[in-house]
């Protein structure tokens, strides 16, 4: 059994001008120790998926349907109290903006210790001691001094390390990282990605990585799901997706990123563009959501939405025209 199984998750929001289908029927699973990346552009529903797993979607205006099975239990059936026992304990989350997600008036020691005291019943003293351990584990120099400092005394990279320390304090089974390095400079991003890789082998937690940066995906993830307009378009292992993208949207994304070192290979061609923009999620669209922007689209694409289909072993895509290899039955 997989650690987390998300089945036909639908998260819709009521808005004054119709229902916004932010996440519309997404299915996936994560095994222990695996790193799964959710990639896509803004508004594709990747962050809403993460928030839904932790049940952080306000209801109303939000509404969730489907199943989110974590270690066999459907999180959508749990009471608020049971859910609180899971958040920050079994499943924890790292957010994008480390400044906004830390409390500015509490020392970082208090903030790391809080989860430990709540979930593991440690005393204040024990919690403080564990906080120091956690800080040194995430590579913060002089942890005994830093533990008494406030978030504003730390740099952006250090704050993100503190966020990671908080997230890992209770040894979670699943870590959700929502754009963990997007707000950071490249040299600091490299430090944090390095840390995440080290810790991954250390703690054996599964990681759900949410990002828009295919470079980050290539570096840290095992499997990847490409999302578009609230749907899953393609899923494959990382080497497979980069070598053999099946969905025209994935192809487009890979062609649209400028690559470092391209001038050395004499490649100064134009970037390939994906024309147009993301469709309005409040409108009912019958056909493929990508058909308006797709170079392969024909009438069938505009009428019938393609289902997810296995196009190669372990590689699914939702496209009528994606080439299909022999899949052993």
């Amino acid at each position: 059994m997989a650690l987390l199984e998300v089945e036909d998750l639908q998260t819709h929001f009521r808005t004054p001008d119709g229902i916004n289908r932010s996440v519309d029927g997404v299915t996936f699973s994560i095994e222990s120790g695996q790193t799964l990346a959710l990639v896509g552009e803004s508004g594709c529903g990747k962050s809403v998926t993460a928030m839904s797993i932790l049940r952080l979607i306000p209801e109303p205006p939000g509404k969730m349907a489907g199943k989110i099975r974590f270690m066999g239990r459907n999180l959508l059936d749990l009471s608020d109290k049971e859910m609180r026992g899971i958040r920050g304990n079994d499943i924890s989350m790292i957010f994008q903006e480390p400044m906004n997600s830390l409390n500015p008036v509490l020392t970082i020691g208090r903030q790391i210790g809080e989860t430990l005291r709540l979930h593991q019943g440690l005393s204040q003293k024990e919690a403080e001691q564990r906080a120091v351990d956690m800080l040194s584990r995430v590579g913060i120099p002089e942890p005994t001094r830093r533990v008494g400092e406030y978030p504003h005394q730390l740099s952006g990279g250090m704050r993100q390390r503190v966020m990671i320390a908080i997230a890992l304090a209770c040894n979670p089974k699943l870590l959700i990282a929502d754009e963990p390095t997007t707000a950071l400079d490249v040299t600091i991003q490299a430090q944090i990605l390095d840390l995440v890789r080290d810790l991954k082998t250390d703690i054996g937690a599964a990681i759900l990585l949410i990002t828009h940066d295919l470079g980050v995906v290539a570096e840290v993830a095992d499997r990847v799901i490409v999302m578009y307009a609230g749907r899953k378009m393609e899923e494959a292992s990382v080497p497979e997706l980069f070598a053999n993208p099946k969905h025209p949207y994935t192809e487009g994304l890979l062609g649209a990123i400028p690559r470092l070192g391209s001038s050395l290979r004499g490649a100064t061609a134009r970037l390939s563009e994906i024309p147009g923009m993301v469709p309005n999620l409040k409108k009912q669209i019958d056909g493929c959501l990508f058909s308006e922007r797709c170079y392969k689209a024909t009438d069938i694409c505009r009428k019938i939405a393609p289902g997810l289909e296995e196009k190669a072993p372990g590689h699914v895509a939702a496209c009528h025209y994606a080439s299909k290899e022999m899949v052993p039955a």
Binding site: S155, G157, M158, V186, T187, I188, Q189, A190, Q191, L193, D194, D213, L214, G215, V216, V217, A218, E219, V238, P239, F242, A243, L254, I257, R259, L260, G261
Partner: peptide
């Protein structure tokens, strides 16, 4: 700086210089 940029190619084998500190 160049070595820190993640390259969208899982097969790329690069050595990375990770700068210490801020």
């Amino acid at each position: 700086l160049l070595s820190a940029v993640p390259i969208p190619d899982p097969k790329a084998k690069r050595s990375r210089i990770i700068l210490k500190g801020d």
